[in-house]
Each structure stands twice: as C-alpha cells, then as structure tokens.
C-alpha cells in the first residue's frame, strides 16, 4: 500500500467577506483577551490576574464582615476610589500593551491596508481597554452584591448603590481607557508608556490632594470642592453623586453636572488626540 500526498494546489476563497464592523469587533475581542494576557505567553498573564485578585480583596473582606457583624463594610460607590491605585496600575501596565507593539513593530500598516480604518482601529482598542477595566471593577462589585443578597442583611439590599456603582464603573472605564491610550500611543516604547500613565495618575492625585488640603486650610471649601475633581477617580465619584445621589467620598463636590461635563470633555479630547496621532502614523 502506498500513501500518496496530493498537492491540491491553490484554492480560491469564495466564502463570506464581512465588513469593517465584524473586523473591528474581532480586533476588540483579540485586544480584550490580550489585556488579561490570554493568547499571550504565560508571564503576560501574571500581572493582570494578580491585579484582578487584589481587586477582589475588599469584596471578600467585606463579605466576611457582613457575615460576622451583620453590617455593611464598604459601600459600592466607594469601591473604585478605595482601589484607585490598583486600577491605575492596571491601566498603566495594560494600555501600552494595547497600542505600543503595533507601533513599535510597525504592524499598523497591515491593519490600515485592510478594510479596518483608523476610526475602527482606535474604536476597537478603546472598547477593549474600557471593557477590561470595567470587568476589573464590575466582577468584585457583583460578587459583593451576591454576597450581600446571600447574607441577607437587615433592611433592604443596596441595589440602587450597586447599580450606581456599575454605571460609575462604565464612566470611569471609558474615561481612563481614553486617557491611558492617548498617553500610551505617543511612544512605541512600552516602558515609557507605563511610566507616562503612572506619572499622569500620580500627578493628578497629588495635585488634587495638595490643592484640597491647602484650600481647606485657608477656609475656601468651595474652591476645595473643585480641586477634588482634578483626580479622575474623584471626578467619576462626583458624577455618581450627581446622577444617583450616592454619598461622596470627598468632602462634597461642586453642585450641578460639572463633573459629567468635565468627563465628557476630557474623554473627547483624549479620543481626538488619539485619532490625530493615528492619522499621522498612518501616512508615515
């Protein structure tokens, strides 16, 4: 008996060719998996999963407190501000991964020579990072809520707070993703990208804290209320307060929709910066 390997030659593809949107969706899915190190070497999984585990700690402790002491330990809307440093580290380490390799290894022209345009590319990367951030926050919040329902504290469950925190999580994710990507996209070097995002976080939180401290000590509490908003995490907390009347983490924010306006303006500026950056890269 003889085995023959037939060279079947070149076969044409006459199956479906999907449009831009499915391609962009595939890119978003690929990038989202990549943000958690899935489909990447084992060592790329360590940091995102470690951070995700740390994000769970307050939820676990809180459930234990609820079970033992029958009282709420951490409020849902406060979760993101409590964990701001951890979320910032995730943002700093994962946003350069989203954009830097494609710039550094010059993969971008391969995307742009396909139906995927700049808007699709940037949109997919933003959606992927925002989703990754939201998952990071929403999973512990949801586990905490399930815990609360199971333990059945006296009084009604904090459903309103939980939902408010989820909406706040969406706002925070979109805001941070656009800032993170905009900063990271300016350098093809990953280390530099990490440093610039971390520097941005440290700078805003330090400026915010210093101004709040100084303004409060000289008795200008109204100005201090504005100073809180320099920190993106307090900014989103202020949005939650305005939208849902949750308890502010800071000592009160300026009244009115200003926090939301600032969030929208900053997000729009970051996205415009990103698009401009990629328009320039596309013709290079």
């Amino acid at each position: 008996m003889t085995a023959v390997i037939h060279d079947i030659g070149y076969r044409r593809y006459d199956g479906p060719r999907l449009g831009r949107f499915p391609a962009a969706l595939a890119l978003a899915r690929h990038s989202l998996r990549g943000a958690y190190g899935l489909g990447r070497p084992a060592k790329s999984k360590i940091l995102p999963f470690l951070i995700a585990a740390i994000m769970m700690l307050p939820a676990v402790v809180s459930i234990a407190v609820m079970a033992l002491l029958k009282q709420e330990a951490i409020s849902y809307p406060a979760y993101m501000v409590t964990m701001e440093a951890v979320i910032a580290i995730f943002l700093a380490t994962q946003s350069p991964y989203m954009v830097a390799p494609d710039l550094r290894f010059r993969v971008l022209p391969l995307y742009l020579s396909r139906p995927v345009g700049i808007v699709d590319y940037v949109g997919a990367k933003l959606a992927a990072l925002a989703t990754a951030l939201f998952v990071l926050l929403a999973v512990p919040l949801t586990i905490l809520f399930i815990g609360e329902l199971l333990i059945d504290l006296p009084g009604p469950p904090h459903t309103h707070d939980y939902l408010a925190a989820l909406v706040g999580g969406v706002v925070l994710s979109v805001l941070l993703a656009s800032i993170g990507l905009a900063l990271a996209s300016f350098t093809p070097r990953r280390g530099l990208g990490v440093a610039s995002v971390i520097a941005f976080y440290l700078f805003t939180s330090a400026v915010s804290a210093v101004f709040v401290g100084v303004l409060q000590s000289v008795g200008k509490s109204e100005a201090a209320a504005w100073a809180w908003l320099a920190n993106p995490f307090f900014l989103v907390d202020a949005v939650q307060v305005w939208l849902f009347g949750t308890n502010p983490i800071g000592d009160g924010y300026p009244p009115g929709p200003w926090a939301l306006v600032i969030v929208l303006v900053v997000t729009a500026l970051a996205v415009l910066g990103l698009l401009a950056r990629y328009r320039k890269a596309a013709t290079a």
Binding site: Y13, G15, P16, R17, L18, G19, R20, P22, A23, A26, L27, H30, G39, R40, P41, P101, D102, F105, R106, V107, P109, L110, Y111, R114, P115, V116
Partner: peptide, 25 residues
C-alpha cells in the same frame, strides 16, 4: 519594512490578519 510582532506564532498572526480582512474565524 519589518511588520511582525515577535511574541506570537505565524499561525496566530496570519489568522488574526485574515480576520482583519473580514474572514470569519
């Protein structure tokens, strides 16, 4: 110019690029 990321395999990369051209997975 060079346009390949170093940390993925050729198979993964080419599959990904096929999807970017609109092919189903």
């Amino acid at each position: 110019h060079d346009c390949l990321p170093p940390d993925v395999s050729a198979t993964e990369f080419v599959v990904h690029m096929a999807q970017m051209s609109g092919l189903p997975r």
